[in-house]
Protein backbone atom coordinates (compact mmCIF):
# COMPACT_ATOMS: atom_id res chain seq x y z
CA UNK A 1 0.00 0.00 0.00
CA UNK A 2 2.97 2.22 0.66
CA UNK A 3 4.09 1.89 -2.97
CA UNK A 4 0.71 3.11 -4.14
CA UNK A 5 1.09 6.12 -1.88
CA UNK A 6 4.65 6.84 -3.03
CA UNK A 7 3.79 6.44 -6.73
CA UNK A 8 1.12 9.14 -6.42
CA UNK A 9 2.65 11.10 -3.58
CA UNK A 10 1.98 14.51 -5.14
CA UNK A 11 -1.66 13.68 -5.80
CA UNK A 12 -2.25 12.43 -2.27
CA UNK A 13 -0.57 15.48 -0.75
CA UNK A 14 -2.55 17.91 -2.90
CA UNK A 15 -5.72 15.99 -2.03
CA UNK A 16 -4.85 16.29 1.62
CA UNK A 17 -4.36 20.03 1.18
CA UNK A 18 -7.73 20.45 -0.54
CA UNK A 19 -9.54 18.41 2.13
CA UNK A 20 -7.86 20.39 4.92
CA UNK A 21 -8.52 23.78 3.35
CA UNK A 22 -12.16 22.94 2.62
CA UNK A 23 -12.74 21.67 6.15
CA UNK A 24 -11.10 24.64 7.85
CA UNK A 25 -12.75 27.26 5.63
CA UNK A 26 -16.16 25.63 5.95
CA UNK A 27 -16.01 25.29 9.73
CA UNK A 28 -14.89 28.92 10.18
CA UNK A 29 -17.30 30.49 7.68
CA UNK A 30 -20.02 28.18 8.97
CA UNK A 31 -19.39 29.39 12.50
CA UNK A 32 -19.65 33.04 11.44
CA UNK A 33 -22.98 32.28 9.78
CA UNK A 34 -24.17 30.04 12.62
CA UNK A 35 -23.61 32.56 15.40
CA UNK A 36 -26.45 34.98 14.58
CA UNK A 37 -28.72 32.07 13.63
CA UNK A 38 -27.96 30.27 16.88
CA UNK A 39 -28.60 33.40 18.92
CA UNK A 40 -31.88 33.96 17.07
CA UNK A 41 -32.83 30.33 17.72
CA UNK A 42 -32.05 30.71 21.42
CA UNK A 43 -34.14 33.90 21.70
CA UNK A 44 -36.86 32.24 19.64
CA UNK A 45 -38.92 35.39 19.29
CA UNK A 46 -40.20 37.48 16.42
CA UNK A 47 -39.31 37.23 12.78
CA UNK A 48 -35.66 36.35 13.42
CA UNK A 49 -36.72 33.33 15.45
CA UNK A 50 -38.99 32.07 12.68
CA UNK A 51 -36.34 32.64 10.01
CA UNK A 52 -33.67 30.88 12.06
CA UNK A 53 -36.05 27.95 12.70
CA UNK A 54 -36.77 27.72 8.98
CA UNK A 55 -33.10 27.89 8.06
CA UNK A 56 -32.05 25.17 10.49
CA UNK A 57 -34.80 22.75 9.52
CA UNK A 58 -34.39 23.38 5.80
CA UNK A 59 -30.68 22.69 5.69
CA UNK A 60 -30.67 19.89 8.26
CA UNK A 61 -33.58 18.17 6.57
CA UNK A 62 -31.96 17.46 3.23
CA UNK A 63 -28.94 15.28 2.52
CA UNK A 64 -25.76 17.24 1.90
CA UNK A 65 -25.48 15.50 -1.46
CA UNK A 66 -28.78 17.01 -2.59
CA UNK A 67 -27.77 20.45 -1.34
CA UNK A 68 -24.51 20.09 -3.21
CA UNK A 69 -26.30 19.24 -6.46
CA UNK A 70 -28.81 22.00 -5.85
CA UNK A 71 -26.06 24.60 -5.58
CA UNK A 72 -23.74 23.25 -8.25
CA UNK A 73 -26.11 22.06 -10.97
CA UNK A 74 -28.99 24.32 -9.96
CA UNK A 75 -26.85 27.44 -10.31
CA UNK A 76 -26.04 26.49 -13.91
CA UNK A 77 -29.67 27.03 -14.78
CA UNK A 78 -29.43 30.66 -13.75
CA UNK A 79 -26.11 31.30 -15.41
CA UNK A 80 -27.43 34.28 -17.37
CA UNK A 81 -28.82 36.01 -14.29
CA UNK A 82 -25.72 35.19 -12.29
CA UNK A 83 -23.52 36.60 -15.06
CA UNK A 84 -25.42 39.86 -15.06
CA UNK A 85 -25.07 40.02 -11.28
CA UNK A 86 -21.33 39.45 -11.60
CA UNK A 87 -21.53 36.27 -9.48
CA UNK A 88 -20.90 33.74 -12.20
CA UNK A 89 -17.19 33.31 -11.41
CA UNK A 90 -18.30 32.01 -8.01
CA UNK A 91 -20.96 29.54 -9.15
CA UNK A 92 -18.96 28.37 -12.14
CA UNK A 93 -16.28 26.94 -9.87
CA UNK A 94 -17.00 23.57 -8.32
CA UNK A 95 -14.75 24.42 -5.37
CA UNK A 96 -16.74 27.50 -4.40
CA UNK A 97 -20.07 25.74 -4.94
CA UNK A 98 -18.94 22.87 -2.76
CA UNK A 99 -17.69 25.24 -0.12
CA UNK A 100 -20.98 27.14 -0.15
CA UNK A 101 -22.97 23.92 0.29
CA UNK A 102 -20.72 22.82 3.16
CA UNK A 103 -21.01 26.21 4.87
CA UNK A 104 -24.81 26.31 4.55
CA UNK A 105 -25.05 22.76 5.90
CA UNK A 106 -22.64 23.08 8.81
CA UNK A 107 -24.04 26.47 9.82
CA UNK A 108 -27.41 24.81 10.45
CA UNK A 109 -25.85 22.16 12.69
CA UNK A 110 -23.56 24.64 14.47
CA UNK A 111 -26.49 26.99 15.08
CA UNK A 112 -28.31 24.19 16.92
CA UNK A 113 -25.20 23.50 19.01
CA UNK A 114 -24.89 27.20 19.89
CA UNK A 115 -28.58 27.38 20.72
CA UNK A 116 -28.23 24.40 23.05
CA UNK A 117 -25.31 25.89 24.92
CA UNK A 118 -26.92 29.34 25.18
CA UNK A 119 -30.14 27.84 26.51
CA UNK A 120 -28.17 25.74 28.97
CA UNK A 121 -26.66 28.73 30.74
CA UNK A 122 -28.21 28.87 34.21
CA UNK A 123 -30.53 31.80 34.86
CA UNK A 124 -28.48 32.85 37.88
CA UNK A 125 -25.81 34.10 35.49
CA UNK A 126 -28.36 36.25 33.67
CA UNK A 127 -29.54 37.58 37.02
CA UNK A 128 -25.96 38.42 37.96
CA UNK A 129 -25.60 40.32 34.70
CA UNK A 130 -28.74 42.32 35.47
CA UNK A 131 -27.56 42.98 39.03
CA UNK A 132 -24.26 44.34 37.67
CA UNK A 133 -26.22 46.64 35.35
CA UNK A 134 -24.50 45.25 32.27
CA UNK A 135 -26.11 46.27 29.01
CA UNK A 136 -27.47 43.40 26.94
CA UNK A 137 -24.65 43.72 24.46
CA UNK A 138 -21.90 43.81 27.11
CA UNK A 139 -23.49 40.93 28.96
CA UNK A 140 -23.57 38.91 25.77
CA UNK A 141 -20.05 39.81 24.66
CA UNK A 142 -18.24 39.49 27.98
CA UNK A 143 -20.27 36.84 29.83
CA UNK A 144 -22.77 34.78 27.88
CA UNK A 145 -20.78 34.36 24.68
CA UNK A 146 -17.56 33.04 26.28
CA UNK A 147 -19.52 30.63 28.46
CA UNK A 148 -21.66 29.46 25.55
CA UNK A 149 -18.64 28.83 23.32
CA UNK A 150 -16.78 26.93 26.00
CA UNK A 151 -19.85 24.78 26.59
CA UNK A 152 -20.37 24.30 22.86
CA UNK A 153 -16.82 23.07 22.28
CA UNK A 154 -17.48 19.33 22.50
CA UNK A 155 -20.42 19.67 20.11
CA UNK A 156 -18.52 21.91 17.74
CA UNK A 157 -15.58 19.49 17.82
CA UNK A 158 -17.91 16.68 16.85
CA UNK A 159 -19.26 18.80 14.01
CA UNK A 160 -15.68 19.47 12.91
CA UNK A 161 -15.10 15.73 12.50
CA UNK A 162 -18.44 15.20 10.72
CA UNK A 163 -17.59 18.06 8.39
CA UNK A 164 -14.17 16.62 7.61
CA UNK A 165 -15.91 13.42 6.55
CA UNK A 166 -18.56 15.34 4.63
CA UNK A 167 -15.97 17.09 2.43
CA UNK A 168 -15.44 13.74 0.71
CA UNK A 169 -18.81 14.19 -1.01
CA UNK A 170 -17.35 17.05 -3.03
CA UNK A 171 -15.39 14.49 -5.02
CA UNK A 172 -18.66 13.79 -6.83
CA UNK A 173 -18.71 17.30 -8.27
CA UNK A 174 -15.14 16.90 -9.55
CA UNK A 175 -13.22 18.34 -6.60
CA UNK A 176 -9.86 16.63 -6.18
CA UNK A 177 -9.75 16.27 -2.44
CA UNK A 178 -8.54 13.02 -0.85
CA UNK A 179 -11.61 11.17 -2.07
CA UNK A 180 -11.35 12.74 -5.53
CA UNK A 181 -7.72 11.70 -5.85
CA UNK A 182 -8.60 8.19 -4.71
CA UNK A 183 -11.27 8.00 -7.41
CA UNK A 184 -8.82 9.31 -9.99
CA UNK A 185 -6.07 6.88 -9.01
CA UNK A 186 -8.58 4.03 -8.97
CA UNK A 187 -9.71 4.91 -12.48
CA UNK A 188 -6.07 4.94 -13.63
CA UNK A 189 -4.87 1.74 -12.00
CA UNK A 190 -8.06 -0.24 -11.20
CA UNK A 191 -6.30 -0.88 -7.92
CA UNK A 192 -8.81 -1.07 -5.08
CA UNK A 193 -6.08 -0.25 -2.61
CA UNK A 194 -6.40 3.41 -3.68
CA UNK A 195 -9.57 3.59 -1.59
CA UNK A 196 -7.86 1.94 1.35
CA UNK A 197 -5.05 4.49 1.17
CA UNK A 198 -7.64 7.28 1.23
CA UNK A 199 -9.36 5.53 4.16
CA UNK A 200 -6.07 5.50 6.09
CA UNK A 201 -5.69 9.22 5.47
CA UNK A 202 -9.14 9.92 6.87
CA UNK A 203 -8.55 7.61 9.82
CA UNK A 204 -5.33 9.41 10.77
CA UNK A 205 -6.89 12.84 10.22
CA UNK A 206 -9.84 12.03 12.47
CA UNK A 207 -7.66 10.48 15.19
CA UNK A 208 -5.34 13.51 15.22
CA UNK A 209 -8.30 15.86 15.24
CA UNK A 210 -9.91 13.96 18.13
CA UNK A 211 -6.72 14.12 20.16
CA UNK A 212 -6.38 17.81 19.46
CA UNK A 213 -9.99 18.56 20.36
CA UNK A 214 -9.72 16.63 23.60
CA UNK A 215 -6.75 18.81 24.57
CA UNK A 216 -8.69 22.00 23.89
CA UNK A 217 -11.68 20.70 25.82
CA UNK A 218 -9.59 19.83 28.85
CA UNK A 219 -8.40 23.45 28.97
CA UNK A 220 -12.00 24.61 29.21
CA UNK A 221 -13.04 22.21 31.92
CA UNK A 222 -14.35 25.15 33.97
CA UNK A 223 -17.29 25.54 31.64
CA UNK A 224 -18.67 22.05 32.18
Amino acid sequence: MLDLWLDYKDLWLSGLKVTASLTLLAILLGFVLALPIGVARARNRGLSGVLAYGYVNFFRGMPLLVLLFLVYYGAGEFSRDLRSLGLWWFFRDAYYCGLLALVLNTAAYQAEIIRGSLNGIPSSIREANAALNLTRWTAFRRVLFPIAIARALPGLGNEFILLLKATSLLAIITIFDLMGQARFIFSETFDLRAYYVAALHYLVLVLVLEWFLRRIESRNAWAA
Partner: peptide, 8 residues
Protein backbone atom coordinates in the same frame (compact mmCIF):
# COMPACT_ATOMS: atom_id res chain seq x y z
CA UNK B 1 -16.56 3.36 10.89
CA UNK B 2 -16.98 6.58 12.84
CA UNK B 3 -13.88 8.03 11.16
CA UNK B 4 -14.37 6.98 7.56
CA UNK B 5 -16.59 9.06 5.30
CA UNK B 6 -19.78 7.11 4.57
CA UNK B 7 -19.23 7.35 0.84
CA UNK B 8 -15.76 5.83 1.12
Amino acid sequence: FKSLPEIL
